[in-house]
Nucleic acid binder design. Structure first.
Lengths: 218, 218
DNA sequence: ATTAATTTTTAGACAAATCTAAAAATTTGT
DNA sequence: ACAAATTTTTAGATTTGTCTAAAAATTAAT
């Protein structure tokens, strides 16, 4: 399996999460920041390798084999991100680029031992679940902060946007995973929110509140 | 810099250590387990990038730029090997293959932090020196065990052959880095040796004794 | 039910890295 | 010095992954 094939598998896996329809050639091309003709070529290759099933105008769907492979890459990515933050003093906005490289290292023993070394972590530094060895991905009942009502309360368990800009912004606001967040006020005018983060009051925009996941406690 | 280019650079660096002559196309091809025509192509590319200077029939020599890059790859390789043995329970005969992949990961911060995490190690699990950030490689006065005389004594500081087969053989004999080794007897007939390793007496073949490095103490 | 818009595929080219087979250049041996 | 042996290069093909531009297929709209 080449690096490029793995990246396409990952892309298709991610796009598939968002719908129950097949993933279109154009959608894949856009996600991969490439041209539709390139996507067509790769779809053909992955299809020949039985990693996905493709029907024109109905999109691509990963086979069990394809899904398993994609999840393994995601598992590696998230374990490496955890290592970088926990052991190499990376901050959560710096890990992605390096993990994109490390995720393609091929060694079962390596990933097994890394998992053990890290103490079998459940989530990566952005709160995303780390798939287990068998490809199972745990889900938790989380809500988008923007959907909470006044006086609702919960724990910050993840972010939807893992871009460096957004993560740095959260750092500045002192919002991080595990924080207790309470909705003080919702502003109907622009959908901004007054919230209390571990005791500190602050205001965040609608856009920001749509990218923060909360596990409700109240 | 592509993966393949880095591997050729490393090969040429290694071959250059063994002679003061330039490294021939054929020698490179043989080392890389490929054909001379492929080596010619790559030499041309590396030459265009000013990573080496090549004169037909006189061989290739790395420029400062080329040497620096090769050494950086070697630094990464040896740091990762150290990590695998020290933290992920790999044995010294298992690390090479994985390190061959990890050495190509491109991130200055990663390697700097890994070095710090490992406590700035001086040598990798095979006793080879880890180049510093500036590309300097420490040398120690070591001798091949086969060259020691009766009653000579020293510390095992490295191996010349890092093949899995040889390293496993050393494990079986309970020989590892740091052991004190004393020559009890040299057999003129087949050049085998009786030695004492941290108190235990054993006999090793001429071939084995040529692949063990000793830092003499007596 | 045709046209229009969109989606997808094909055709042909390119760069990287390799190969085989043959040709060219250089060195060595007598 | 000349043929023989060796080393190196060229020429042309192949695979992977990409591109542009154009053609074909399908879906949507009036």
């Amino acid at each position: 399996m080449t690096l490029s094939e793995e990246n396409y598998l990952k892309a298709i896996f991610n796009l598939q999460q968002e719908t129950d329809k097949g993933v279109s050639t154009n959608a894949i091309a856009e996600f991969m920041d490439t041209k539709a003709s390139s996507a067509t070529d790769m779809i053909k290759r992955l299809s020949e390798k039985k990693l996905l099933i493709y029907k024109p105008y109905q999109g691509a769907r990963l086979t069990d084999k394809g899904r398993m492979h994609a999840v393994k890459v995601i598992r590696k990515h998230r374990l490496w991100e955890t290592f970088l933050v926990e052991n190499l003093e990376f901050s959560w906005d710096e890990v992605h680029e390096v993990a994109e490289q490390l995720e393609h290292i091929d060694s079962d023993k390596l990933i097994k031992q890394l998992d053990k070394f890290l103490g079998y972590p459940k989530n990566d530094p952005h709160g995303d679940p780390i798939p287990d060895e068998n490809g199972n991905i745990a889900t938790i009942e989380k809500k988008i902060l923007a959907e909470l009502q006044k006086n609702d309360e919960g724990i910050c368990v993840g972010v939807d946007d893992s871009s460096s800009a957004f993560l740095k912004y959260l750092d500045k606001l002192n919002i991080s995973l595990g924080n207790n967040i309470k909705v003080i006020e919702k502003e109907a005018f622009d959908n901004s929110m007054s919230i209390e983060v571990d005791g500190n009051k602050l205001t965040i925009s609608s856009l920001a509140s749509k990218n923060i996941y909360i596990k409700k406690t109240k």
